[in-house]
Design a protein around this nucleic acid. Structure first.
Ligand SMILES: [Mn+2]
Ligand SMILES: [Mn+2]
Ligand SMILES: [Zn+2]
Ligand SMILES: [Zn+2]
Lengths: 136, 136
DNA sequence: TCCTTGTTTATAATTATTCTAAAGAAGATT
DNA sequence: AATCTTCTTTAGAATAATTATAAACAAGGA
């Protein structure tokens, strides 16, 4: 449970002005028990529902991109009409329940270490992500 | 090198009428030495360039979806503004060169077997895909 | 040849995302 | 506190990938 004051400091330390909107978004995103997987639209609705204050859609986009750039959010590679983000920014893998359109974290020990044996000259590995699609 | 006649048979066997447009698209997609990774727009342009006959964008979409549904194309999960498809429909993994926006196949032996230790009640695993992002 | 059904196509509709530019708020400077 | 600068929010417009529509057309069967 992070206090509003702590969010304000964190934003300032990231050279992001602590606006009412950003603080509300922080509370929705980061005051959760579990990893939170969401689309922009999910977040837009949750901010309204959970804080009672409406934030414009443009601001949700702006803020998510700002947080993503600062490394506070991760983008999850799946094919969907909407982009998914994740509050768990560590290297980790996912289940994707295709029917429910829901992401579930996999612990690294549930997947095991992955050694990539091939390399491309002049390129280095930035990330290795496993996506496990689930069906009924 | 598959002949036009063979494409016609293959289409018929899939209860897809062998139209001029579909045959042209088949030749662009499947008469290649290597696995072919593409977006709809790539394909749209290549059909025009390689066959000299223009096919409407709608038909490219329709055909790709039809082939995908029949299992002749695979959709690759990456976040991009365009959807990527793959003529290699076997289970396999990818490099994604973020700068060049290009996919490269990984052989299964370059990644090794992946054992998923976790399961979700009532769900079964449909696919396991590794995406390795590359940077300079 | 006629008939039915599937296909192509131009075009419009939809939808997620980004852009624009004006109004507002934050922080710094006096 | 008043002023100034820079950043942020916002409504709305623009963009761009994809999907839907519906009329013309082509394939295959009778
Ligand atoms: Mn982003
Ligand atoms: Mn598809
Ligand atoms: Zn996650
Ligand atoms: Zn591939």
């Amino acid at each position: 449970m992070t206090s509003k004051q702590e969010f304000i400091e964190k934003l300032r330390n990231s050279s992001l002005r602590p606006t009412k909107q950003r603080i509300n978004i922080c509370e929705v995103l980061f005051n959760r028990d579990k990893t939170f997987h969401f689309t922009i639209n999910d977040l837009f609705n949750l901010v309204k529902d959970e804080t009672g204050e409406k934030v414009s859609l443009a601001t949700v986009y702006n803020t998510v991109h700002a947080f993503h750039k600062k490394g506070y959010l991760k983008e999850i590679p799946i094919n969907s009409n909407q982009t998914y983000f994740d509050t768990n920014v560590t290297d980790h893998h996912h289940f994707f329940d295709v029917k429910e359109e829901k992401l579930i974290d996999l612990k690294n020990e549930d997947v095991g270490p992955i050694e990539i044996q091939k390399s491309i000259p002049g390129k280095k590995i930035k990330s290795v992500e496993v996506l496990v699609k689930l069906e009924d």
